[in-house]
């Protein structure tokens, strides 16, 4: 049990260190506009990669049909600039209805 608690605490501390590095180091060094832009771009690239992997992969294998279909509907809605709530509910609803119909 002690090992488990320690593992949780170290995971928490390590995750905090990852999160803390940026805000602290940014304050110490003057970032050029170019670097500033590159940082913003890298966050967008990470989020896009998260969306893509969460969308089509389940663990290390391909996900079923319902989730990608739901996200696709959400993506189209977002592209058409409908309100955020509609995007999220549309994506979830599509996936839920497809699963109700037996689509994996």
């Amino acid at each position: 049990m002690t090992t488990l608690v320690l593992a949780i605490l170290v995971l928490g501390a390590g995750t905090f260190a990852f999160r803390f590095a940026g805000p602290v180091l940014r304050a110490r060094i003057e970032l050029s506009a170019r670097m500033e832009r590159l940082m913003a771009m890298s966050a967008v690239v990470l989020l896009a990669a998260l969306v893509a992997t969460a969308d089509v992969m389940e663990g290390q294998e391909l996900a079923g049909v319902a989730r990608p279909a739901g996200v696709l509907v959400g993506g189209v809605l977002a592209w058409r600039r409908v309100p955020f709530v509609v995007v999220v509910v549309g994506a979830a609803g599509t996936a839920a209805v497809l699963r109700l119909l037996g689509v994996p």
Partner: peptide, 30 residues
């Protein structure tokens, strides 16, 4: 998953990221 929540989170992130993708360099990299 029965409520489609696994689709809701990627869709939410996508909606938030989409405006940043109007920039061609960012779009290509993403």
């Amino acid at each position: 998953d029965a409520f489609g929540l696994d689709a809701a989170f990627p869709a939410a992130l996508m909606a938030l990221v989409l405006p940043s993708l109007r920039d061609p360099d960012t779009r290509r990299a993403a």
